[in-house]
Nucleic acid binder design. Structure first.
Length: 893
RNA sequence: GGGAGUUUAGCUCAGUUGGUUUAGAGCAUCUGCCUUACAAGCAGAGGGUCACAGGUUCGACUCCUGUAACUCCCACCA
């Protein structure tokens, strides 16, 4: 079979993914093995794959593939989230394009469109994950609005309501005027926004001279002002407390009141109180028994509805329906016209915006459903404790603090949304305003038969998306809808959760709560937090900036393995990653490197000589070692060494480092050293035992790399020799103890090869020119096992051992041995001297630092004996080397 | 305003409880090679007073204090 020049990923990716699927390798059913479970953070049902998903799912696939190869029962559950607000916004936008407004539709009609949309776009992201090689158990694909899932969410609501944890109340909520719904605190993102501070004077109501001036960023809310508040100790205003002033434009009489809450040194020290439009003002209003006059409708437009009829004038009427931001400017102009605007200052303030729509949030008094979180958490102390005591382990652990802080300061969760796409709140109202909560209308009728005769209306609102996704790790296994089934008992608690730090509150914390509250145990054991994927300059990836690469395009261009490599190689755990396309090139080059190694082996395949079994280390005498066999023994040891290292790193979730180590093992140790050492001369045969060992090594390397780069490794695994099994389900053998002695010998050999190549380079000895090497060493025996490799690697015609300097040669010192290199080149004595002198200076400097340490009585008295021994050895070594170099320099006179 | 984190080579990062030859890797750079697996490659090299200032210690990249810069989280002083 002729192999292509370079690795061509496209065809083989398709081939292997189908093969794995056809063999059902990703399917999991409970059995006697240990389970390794990951539930995928469900992407938004209408989303498309971006770099964040790529990172996240690559990590999950690495973990799940490794677990599978460790012989565990690996189960990775895919699925999507209905993403209430995000999806509804998209459906509304789609309808608008078709000339349909949401308000013209009934709930049923709207949901029909939404489901159509979901069916059309819902699967896209999951299909894209297949292209990345994700080994998900597709039969378990779940959706947060599947019938059973829906039922479970409702059931939990009812349960928590019964327990008095869910309640309905009129509260100040975060209102998103763009999507016309309430939001939870977590969905509000504060941004620094340049705004203005308007200084507005409220004249005294009794007609006396002057008035009180307030500084406000929101003049558009003055029609809702019900008081002016000052600090009771503020001497400027002492005599005004209790006086009445007129609200500009509307001329409402309001009192000047005093409260500690107001800080005297901000603005003018006087605050206008608008209880309907500000959380703090609302608190203040409650305390002082003030009315809350709402002047903005659900879209953030001015409304006169709650204003006193007798105060409404033409100006105010003209404001009706004007958007809050336009109104702000308008009112500023109007107040200036009546001489009450003192000045306008530039001001930077933190403004809350909607996480989804970006709209500026209004604080709005609204009747909503809430969860009393303090009460809820109190039902199970493990919720806070499990993370603190690392029953649930966060990686990186610093996320623990964030979690703890949030738990300590937890506030009630607003769970109702004025949306249709989602689980409709299972509450019914009668005309008298009584509330009935039940799983369904039938359940309600059954439990309270008298309700059959009452006209009931179900709450129009639906639940926050996160109120369904917090059940994800259990309900994907039907843990709520069908408790104690075989799956939930086997797979739950799940093993590892991989997710972004940005949803630690939205999702991670709430899953922990749900886990303990509804299943009495933790939802997962480890949480691996990924950072954010940023561009090369460290900017967030966003559509606006256009710096978000087209993932499928990248997969086409570089191959899925290269993309996986590229995103993982520079991905420190828990830190943001700066995505750079050159990392993908590195991945592609790596593919080619391995591909070419296969080609090399294929060339050897038909040219083996059968020279019996490979000798074991024990029966190799130093004086009769074959270089190929020695190399094989070395690589075996090296492989075992790295396998243990990688294993340890992966246990600690150091995925990026593990990949680096494997990369270097394959590229440097295997390709650059090992293959070159065992490579036969041109058209020469290779010893069969060595060839077979080499194939075995290569397969082991593919095994090690497979979780990271599944396609290329599976392909090579099969190319190396005919197989009846697949790498995908291959189970790792435990690594053996590495032979330390041969590892040390190899380090020496590598150093000498590099050192002598450097000498060749510096003396401009052409690569093709052979040299002769004479070694002056006290331990010639060690060299015997490696001399044939050494000779080949430095293109030396011979290696001989001498006891004295050889005249007319290039002299160099490596370790404690002297090397004399015979070449046809004219000798560059000056260069050599310089090199040796440089080395000598370095050693002398080093020796001084060691001697200084050893000369220090306190050091000798305090240092541990082993440290002292090391220092003494350093000193002896340095002195010995200095002696050797000085001798060499002397010989060069 | 409070809290957490980061600062090591041009770039991205390792550096485990203070001592392991006066700091390691990848990428990039430079030099030499079209050597028969691979120029998307091979061989070799250069490059860091470990952010700054103090302190503890026989000894500090590592521990402590302070400073600076950056990042993130929390908190609606209008």
């Amino acid at each position: 079979m002729e192999l292509s020049k370079n690795f061509e990923p496209q065809a083989i990716e398709q081939k292997w993914y189908s093969h794995w699927m056809n063999n059902g390798y990703f399917k999991s059913v409970p059995d006697e093995r240990e389970a390794y479970t990951i539930v995928m953070p469900p992407p938004n049902v209408t989303g498309v794959l971006h770099m964040g998903h790529c990172l996240n799912n690559t990590i999950q696939d690495i973990l799940i593939r490794r677990a599978r190869m460790q012989g565990k029962n690996a189960c990775w559950v895919p699925g999507t989230d209905h993403a209430s607000i995000a999806t509804e916004a998209k459906v509304v936008a789609m309808l608008r394009e078709r000339g349909i407004t949401k308000s013209s539709l009934s709930r049923e009609e709207f949901l029909k469109y939404a489901w159509e949309w979901k069916e059309k776009y819902g699967g896209i992201i999951l299909e894209q994950l297949k292209k990345m090689g994700c080994s998900l158990d597709w039969d378990r694909t779940s959706f947060t609005m599947d019938p059973d899932y829906y039922k479970s969410v409702i059931e939990i609501f009812v349960r928590l309501h019964k327990d008095g944890i869910i309640y309905r109340g009129l509260r100040m909520v975060n209102w998103d005027p763009a999507s016309k719904t309430a939001l939870s605190d977590e969905e509000v993102i504060f941004k620094d926004i340049d705004s203005k501070l308007y200084y507005v004077t409220y004249p005294f109501a009794d007609g006396s001279e002057g008035g009180i001036t307030v500084a406000t960023t929101r003049p558009e809310t003055i029609m809702g002002d019900v008081a002016i508040c000052v600090n009771p100790t503020d001497e400027r205003y002492l005599n005004m407390i209790g006086k009445e002033v007129l609200v500009p434009i509307i001329d409402r009489k309001i009192k000047i009141i005093a409260d500690e809450y107001v800080t005297a040194d901000f603005g003018t020290g006087a605050l206008k109180v608008t209880p309907a439009h500000d959380k703090n003002d609302n608190e203040l209003g409650k305390k002082h028994n003030l009315r809350a006059l709402n002047t903005l409708d659900e879209e953030g437009k001015f409304t006169l509805e709650e204003l006193e009829d007798d105060l409404i004038n033409d100006t105010i009427v003209s404001y009706a329906g004007v958007d809050r931001f336009a109104l702000r400017k308008k009112i500023a102009v109007d107040i200036e016209a009546i001489g009450l605007l003192q000045k306008i200052e530039d001001y930077k303030s933190q403004v809350g915006t909607s996480e989804r729509t970006g709209a500026v949030i209004e604080s709005r008094l609204s009747l909503q459903w809430f969860m009393d979180m303090k009460k809820f958490i109190a039902t199970n102390p493990d919720i806070a404790a499990a993370v603190a005591d690392e029953r649930i382990k966060f990686h990186p652990s610093k996320a623990k603090n964030t979690y703890a802080h949030w738990m300590d300061n937890i506030k009630d969760w607003c769970i109702s949304r004025q949306l249709w796409w989602g689980q409709q709140i299972p509450a019914w109202y009668d005309e008298a305003g009584n509330v009935y909560v039940a799983e369904s209308i039938e359940a309600l009728h059954n439990s309270q038969p008298e309700t059959r005769n009452i006209q009931l209306f179900q709450d129009e609102d639906c639940l926050d998306t996160w109120f369904s996704s917090w059940l994800w790790p259990m309900e994907v296994f039907k843990g709520i809808s069908n408790p104690n089934n075989a799956d939930i008992n086997y797979y739950y608690p799940t093993t590892t959760l991989v997710t972004g730090q940005d949803i630690i509150f939205f999702w991670v914390a709430r899953m922990v709560m749900a886990g303990y509250a509804f299943k009495q145990t933790q939802p997962f054991k480890d949480v691996y937090f990924t950072g954010m994927v940023r561009d090369k300059q460290g900017r967030k990836m966003s559509k606006q900036l256009g710096n978000s690469p087209d993932l499928l395009g990248l997969i086409d261009q570089y191959g899925a393995d290269a993309v996986r490599f590229g995103i993982m190689i520079a991905s420190p755990a828990g830190n943001d990653i700066l995505f750079d396309e050159s990392a993908l090139e590195q991945g592609r080059n790596f593919n080619n490197k391995m591909w070419n190694a296969v080609k090399l082996l294929k060339m050897w395949e038909g040219r083996t000589t059968d020279d019996g079994q490979l000798k074991t280390n024990d029966n190799i005498g130093l004086w009769s070692v074959d270089s190929g066999q020695w190399s094989a023994l070395w690589f075996e040891a090296r492989l075992n060494e790295v396998k243990s290292e990688v294993n340890e790193m992966l246990n600690q979730f150091k995925l990026s480092e593990a990949l680096k180590v494997i990369y270097s093992l394959i590229w440097d140790d295997f390709c650059s050293w090992y293959l070159e050492w065992v490579k036969p001369g041109f058209e020469q045969p290779i010893e069969k035992a060595v060839y077979e060992k080499t194939v075995e090594f290569f397969a082991s390397l593919m095994e090690l790399l497979h979780p990271f780069m599944p396609f290329v490794t599976e392909e090579i695994y099969h190319l190396l020799q005919d197989r009846t099994d697949d790498l995908c389900t291959h189970v790792y053998a435990a690594p053996l103890q590495a032979d330390e002695k041969i590892l040390a010998e190899a380090v020496l050999l590598k150093n000498i090869i590099s050192g002598l190549r450097d000498v060749r380079n510096k003396n401009q000895v052409k690569p093709k020119e052979t040299i002769k090497v004479h070694i002056q060493t006290a331990e010639a025996a060690v060299y015997k096992s490696i001399e044939s490799i050494l000779a080949k690697q430095i293109n030396s015609a011979s290696i001989t051992y001498v006891n004295d300097a050889v005249a007319g040669t290039i002299t160099t010192v490596i370790g404690k041995d002297k090397f004399y290199i015979e070449t046809e080149q004219p000798l560059n004595m000056v260069g050599q001297r310089e090199d040796l002198e440089k080395e000598l200076a370095h050693l002398k400097g080093f020796l001084i630092s060691v001697e200084k340490k050893l000369g220090n009585e306190k050091f000798v008295a305090n240092a541990k004996p082993e440290v002292l021994a090391i220092e003494n050895k350093k000193k002896a070594d340095a002195e010995e080397k200095i002696g050797i170099i000085e001798e060499s320099l002397g010989g060069m006179e």
